[in-house]
Amino acid sequence: MYQENTSNYKWGYILLFLFFLIFIYGDLFPSTLITDISPAILDMNTIFLSIVLEAIPFVLLGVFVSALIQTFVKEETLARFIPSQPILALLPAVTIGAIFPVCECAIVPIVRRLIQKGMPLHVGIVILVSAPILNPIVFLSTFYAFQTDLTVAWARMGIALIVSLIIGGIVYSRFGNSWQLKEEKGHITHSPHTYRNRLSETFHHASDEFFDMGKFLIIGALLASVIQTFMARDLLTDVGSGFLAGPAVMMGLAYFLSLCSEADAFVASSFKGLFSTSSILAFLVYGPMTDLKNTILMAAYFRKRFVLSFIIIVTIVVYTVTLLFDLFYL
């Protein structure tokens, strides 16, 4: 036992030494060794790291809120605020989504925790899809990115609201209140803790969850960076920008680029001349609701079948609603 212990600690110390070594001498490594093989690898590395670095603060935030909910929110409290009538329950869900200024990386662990605490599945899903879009920061960034066309910012919010309500309804009709998390329902029995205990417990939960979730974030960021580096955007734009193809292409782009919902408006505005407003709206609504990085995060907590149906539902609803919007309003 003692032997086992020391041998495993050894790896920790080797790692520690390695980190310090690279911290001091890392810059001396000639990057030409890599660029000789393929110059794109360093581009990919930079994009990958920037996605990871940008997401880490928000993941930490999400993990902490989730840990706080885990430790401090009682199941009964939650139940009191959510109407038992399933359709009525969608309204507080959207409100919560609009009030919480959380982006899409942070919302996944929070929603998972809320569902675990007894929140109905469809209510949680509505929060999951609405919170990353319906918030003031995203509104402002969209507003600034589309200076000359205010309709985009307003329409983005409006469509997101309608789409999340429809998604909530469909999820309820298909899944009802069935259990879709990977882990078992139930056994959440907390012995009364003292305050100090609770605080350290929150931190323990948070760091465990950071590692649970971090690995999926890193895999997601890696995939997204590979696609960003090696897929020319013309490839997608060549497919088409017509009435039917345009929104589909832009949704595909949104899915694979996995941008943060606060930044995607600026990327979208660079497509202004090439795609119709409805295609751009499809990009802006679909991306925050689901993308490659988020699919992997969700798959960590939810059953695979559910994640798959979720993506299909979101895709169909967003596509239909933007097309209808295009027909009637634009």
């Binding site: 994009i47 960003q228 941008l259 943060c260 930044a263 995607d264």
Partner: peptide, 8 residues
């Protein structure tokens, strides 16, 4: 605007 991944 936020990180290099969204650069234009």
């Amino acid at each position: 605007s936020c990180c290099v991944a969204d650069g234009g």
